[in-house]
Every structure is written in C-alpha cells, then in structure tokens.
Amino acid sequence: MSETIQAADLTRDIPAEIREPFGAYLLYLGDDALVLGHRLSEWCGHGPTLEEDIALANIALDLVGRSDALLRVAAQLEGKGRSEDDLAFFRDATEFRNAALVELPRGDFAFTIVRQFLYDAYALPLYTHIAANATGALSGIAAKAVKETTYHLRHTAEWVRRFGGGTAESKRRAQDALDELWRYTGELFDEDAVTVALAGAQWIPNPSVLRAAWSETVERVLDEADLAAPAVKHHFTGARSGRHTEHLGHLLSEMQIVARSHPGASW
C-alpha cells in the first residue's frame, strides 16, 4: 500500500476480553480471502469468455481487498509493528490460517466456480453475522463483504445451475469438482481453541449455526442443479492450525517472490 495512507486505529471497538482470539480468527478470514483471491487471479487473461475473465478478476479483486482490510486489523491487534503487507508477504506457509479449501489448485473452470460457490455460501452468513453484531470498523468491513458476496454468490450459483443443467460434460465436471472439494468443506465449521474462546462473544457466529446456513444454500442450489452432495465420512482438517496441503507453499512462492526479493520496496 502507498505510504501516504496511514492506518487509522481499526481495533478500538473490539472488546478487551476477545482481542487475542479475535486476532487469530481474523487470520482465518483474511487468509481465506487472500489465498482464494490469488487463486482466482490466476485466471486473469485465461477465462473461458471475456465476460467471465472480467468477472473472475473482479471477484479476485474484491477478495484481495477484503483480506487487505482484515489483515490490517489483525496486524494492529497483534501490536508488533507489522503491517498487512508484512502478514501477506513475509509469513511462511505454516503461519497461514486459511482453510485448505481455498488453497487447492484452480483446476478447470467448473472446479474454480464450484469452489467459489462453496466459499460464497459460507462467507455470506458469516459476514452478515459480523456486520450485524460487531461495531466500528469490523462491522463496516463485514458489511462491504456482504454487499459484494451477495452478487458473487448469485453469479457462482447461476453457473452451478448451468453446469448441472447443461451438457453431460459440464455436469460431469461439476460433479467431479464437488466430489473432490467436499471433504475440504468441513474444516470451515471446525470447533477449535479459537472458536471456543470466542463462543461467548457475539461478534462471530457459532460454527454449527454457520454450517446450517451454509448447508441450506448449498443443498438448495445443488438440488436445482441436479447435482449430488457427496457422502464423506472424514473431512480434511489442520490447515487452520498451519498444517496445509503441499499446494499452499507453491502458491506463496509465486505470490511473495517480488516482495521478498525487494524487501522494503515501494512503488
């Protein structure tokens, strides 16, 4: 970010008793948005149509901007003098707290859209809750995410229906993507030390309530698309505590190389 822009104190409304776990939780949200935004940006110039290329780049930009704001608050809460850019470009893979769902390689267009749909269906009730229950900057950042995710979800849900109701090929690809991605969705709703520590706080939704809202949206759209939710006994877990798939390191090496090759550079 430009050095002209100074960070206002975005943390002053955050209650003292939740500041530490909330800082950790903001890394979940900020890293989800950053890593998924980077994955989407890989499509820039390669989209299947011009309109879709522009749409994916637009959504990527919204997500990277979302992560910029969330990581700025996280860095301020941390209080070690790091900036949002330090968090984005100078942490290693084990320090990232995104869910594995968002770091998987972009795959084909169906995989990218189905993954984005699964994330959007999670992000909308999540940020709706924060916008309504947090105060100050966090409420505002979440309210922006709600406005934007509303039309992201409309776009991705529309594509999921078109895949399912399109050709045998589009339906097969969408179902393959669902089958691959499904076991990575459970992690979004895991109870862990951070969510337990925040359980009494009104600022974040209860994971089981969030899961119910996500399931309602996903099941409705899959039903309309005539696609089947896979049955998965065990879901992937661990990325939120730094145990990622091998894919995150490769993504970060590309995302971080310019900042790490020229530390302190500004332009």
Binding site: M1, T4, I5, Q6, L63, V64, G65, D68, G140
Partner: peptide, 21 residues
C-alpha cells in the same frame, strides 16, 4: 488528516486517490 473510505473492498484507485489528495 483526511479520512477516505473505499467504494469497493478491492478498489485499486485508493492509492492513486491518496497520492492525489
């Protein structure tokens, strides 16, 4: 001190606006 808010989360014009201000 001037306070500005982005139109969209990822508005890439914010930096240019800050420099113009």
């Amino acid at each position: 001190t001037v306070r500005i808010t982005p139109t969209y989360s990822g508005c890439p014009a914010m930096h240019a606006i800050a420099m113009d201000v």
